[in-house]
Design a protein around this nucleic acid. Structure first.
Lengths: 259, 259
DNA sequence: ATGCCTTTGTGAACGCGTGCACAAAGATGG
DNA sequence: CCATCTTTGTGCACGCGTTCACAAAGGCAT
């Protein structure tokens, strides 16, 4: 999962909880797969299993959308696909620009799942003049100078930032100024945006660090010796500035304060 | 943010809440930036602003790690960098394999932030024999046949899946069987894993759909006419199977049931 | 030493999200 | 038409996460 979200916290939009919104795409994907196999109806139990969630949670999620099921039978697949698509706003076309056509930007441009569901790559934009005109995923790369006009001409409201961290905020500012109100940020930076602009962040480094945390914990649980090779390094690296014996989180690293 | 997580729900590891763990990398990044500018200390207010969070939340987060601040002064940057690094398990080296060296896999392999923080790309693996041996990001691509031996020889416990959706579960199974216990999944699929294996999911498509939802809501709020061009399409596409007048989520699409 | 000022650390309240468990609803068979 | 069986929709309780607000703690000037 990508982490981080920058939403207005309270404004539960239209009564649908944020957590539910985040799961709707999951259900939609599972339903689409069923639809392609021409499965007419599905029970909450089956669908929940396919989406990897609890069936009670799924039913409650759907209850926010309305009463779309039939008791004793289940949910009509096609109908539900449409309802969720509509709720997510996928019945309309969303032009998207990708800024920063490096390795990642190119990968995103080539991503098939992009176009499949209402999203259309309106333009690829890069700051490097040498990139300009070169085709990537069948589209010619445009230069950053054209950013504003591209946004306006295509009515783009969703922008994807795949630039280096240093350029992200500047690109973000220009996108927002040009009218973009939703941003998907792949650059490892915290973006500052005005009220009313949604930012979602996808950060590989953060995901790995979270995994490392759990990995370390798992490793520490097997061998009940928390003081591994890292302890020595701890004493070497960490130099507690203030005096006074501090205790670690739970007695771990007991007073390793050299000074 | 990448969405989705597959953790054991309850097991609050070592007393540090999951939500806090997810923010630690954010703090760490902000602190590292401060460290490079040789800033000695930072207050919770300043650091919170840099990390894009509430200062009260930051202080509570740090309180789970221990009492590492000095009242009236703030936090020692270097010391905090070390404490968080240690807590996240970044003081040790984590060998990582990337499976699926397409556009995305190559982008990940080239990602700089990878090596910077304790993570080392042990191998790039792809199923295409034509890829084998070709250097990507300075590493020769290895064939899938070698997956198990690579995992074992390098003691890899973290795997990154960047394959097409169809291959993801199979790759996942092999990774887990070979000893991987943490997986970062970029394929748009729900992965089934045994107990004790952590999966984090990064899904571009889902992120975009969530943005589209909010975008649609914003658009619908300006123009107070929810019944847009989509309504007609609704009647055309949706064919409610069961009879009986259903009402939409809040009166929207009122009884558009062609029967 | 003393008092003031800054900033941390945390107790408490609140709200959101999750899961249980069950009543209501509808299908189905006789 | 009635009984039975399946599955939905949801009231309720619980736990996690967030935020407020403040007392305690330490630095610093006098």
């Amino acid at each position: 999962m990508a982490t981080g979200r920058t939403h207005r916290p309270a404004t539960r939009s239209r009564g649908i909880p944020e957590a539910t919104v985040a799961r709707l795409p999951l259900y939609l994907r599972a339903l689409t797969a069923l639809s392609e196999r021409s499965v007419p109806t599905v029970s909450s139990e089956e669908l929940a299993a396919a989406a990897g969630v609890n069936s009670a949670k799924l039913r409650k999620d759907f209850s926010y959308l309305g009463s779309y099921g039939t008791r004793g039978v289940g949910y009509d697949v096609e109908y539900l696909v449409y309802q969720i698509s509509r709720e997510l706003g996928l019945t309309q076309d969303w032009p998207v620009v990708i800024v920063g056509i490096g390795n990642l930007g190119a990968a995103l441009a080539n991503y098939g799942g992009f176009a499949s569901r209402g999203f259309r790559v309106a333009a690829l934009i890069d700051a490097d003049p040498a990139m300009a005109g070169r085709p990537v995923a069948g589209l010619p790369v445009r230069h950053t100078d054209e950013l504003e006009s591209i946004i306006r001409d295509n009515g783009v409201s969703i922008g994807v930032i795949a630039t280096p961290a240093g350029a992200a905020q500047q690109v973000c500012d220009r996108l927002v100024a040009a009218g973009v109100t939703s941003i998907l940020n792949f650059a490892p930076t915290v973006l500052a945006v005005p009220e009313g602009v949604d930012v979602r962040k996808v950060d590989l480094s953060i995901e790995l660090q979270i995994l490392a945390f759990h990995e370390q914990r798992k490793a520490g649980e097997e061998t009940t010796a928390p003081s591994g090779a890292g302890a020595a390094a701890a004493a070497a690296v960490a130099a507690r500035p203030a005096a006074g014996g501090r205790k670690g989180p739970e007695g771990d690293v007991p007073a390793v304060m050299p000074a």
